[in-house]
C-alpha cells in the first residue's frame, strides 16, 4: 500500500540537482520519487502519500511557496524542506512562517539534507501515528454504551468510584464492573492511558 511507506518527494526543475539528489537518497536507501515541477507533483498526488517534500523554492510554473499554500489548502500534511538559493532569504522566511519544516541554502551540505529529511520523516511519522491513534480511540469510544461512557468520563476526570456511584445512583460495585469493561474496550491498562484518551477527545472537540 502506497501510504504504508514513507517517501521523499523531490521537486526540482533542474535535472542535475534532481538526479544527484535522487542518487544520494538511493545510496542511502531512502525511498523517493522525483518530480520536475509542482504541477507534476500535484497531478500525481492522491492524498495518501506519506513522507516529506524536498522543494526548490524558485521554480518555473508554480513556485515552492505556492505549492506549500496549495497543499495547506488541501489539508495535506507533508513536511516541506525548502532548498533556497542565494538572495532568497525573504522567500525562505515566508516559507518558514507558513510552516515549512526547514530550509537549506545551496550548495547543500549532504549531511544536513539527510538529517533534515530524517527529522521530517520522523516528524511526519509521529504526526501520522498520533492521528492514527486518535482515530483508533475515537473508534473504540464509539463501542462504549451510554452508561459506560458516563463512567469513563467521570473516571478520567478523576472522580472516585464512590462519588460516581452516588452521582449516577448506582452501586459502587456496578461502577467497578463498568470501569473494567471500559478499560477492556478501550484496550488500556492504566488510569493514565484512560486520561490521555479523554484529553485527546477533548482536544479533538475543541
Amino acid at each position: 500500500m502506497s501510504n504504508s511507506e514513507q517517501k521523499v518527494f523531490i521537486i526540482d526543475d533542474d535535472d542535475a540537482v534532481r538526479d544527484s539528489m535522487s542518487m544520494l537518497l538511493e545510496t542511502m536507501g531512502l525511498p523517493h520519487q522525483c518530480y520536475i515541477s509542482a504541477d507534476d507533483f500535484l497531478d500525481n498526488y492522491d492524498g495518501n502519500q506519506r513522507g516529506c517534500l524536498v522543494l526548490d523554492i524558485r521554480m518555473s510554473g508554480i513556485n515552492g511557496l505556492e505549492l506549500q499554500q496549495r497543499l495547506k489548502d488541501m489539508n495535506a500534511f507533508l513536511p516541506i524542506i525548502f532548498i533556497t538559493g542565494h538572495g532568497d532569504v525573504p522567500m525562505a522566511v515566508e516559507a518558514m512562517r507558513q510552516g515549512a519544516m526547514d530550509f537549506l541554502r545551496k550548495p547543500i551540505r549532504e549531511q544536513d539534507l539527510l538529517e533534515r529529511i530524517q527529522e521530517a520523516l520522523d516528524y511526519e511519522k509521529g504526526i501520522r501515528d498520533e492521528l492514527r491513534e486518535r482515530e483508533e480511540s475515537k473508534r473504540k469510544l464509539l463501542t462504549l454504551t451510554t452508561r459506560e461512557r458516563d463512567i469513563f468520563e467521570r473516571v478520567a476526570d478523576g472522580h472516585a468510584n464512590k462519588v460516581i456511584a452516588l452521582e449516577l445512583g448506582i452501586s459502587e460495585r456496578t461502577v467497578e464492573v463498568h470501569r473494567s469493561q471500559v478499560m477492556r474496550k478501550l484496550e488500556v491498562r492504566s488510569l493514565a492511558q484512560l486520561v490521555r484518551i479523554r484529553l485527546e477527545m477533548k482536544n479533538a472537540i475543541d
Binding site: 533542474d14 542535475a16 540537482v17 544527484s20 539528489m21 532548498i83 545551496k106 547543500i108 549532504e110
Partner: peptide
C-alpha cells in the same frame, strides 16, 4: 552556479 555545485556535491 549554485545549481551545478549542488549537484556536484551530492554526486
Amino acid at each position: 552556479i549554485n545549481q551545478p555545485l549542488t549537484a556536484i556535491s551530492m554526486y
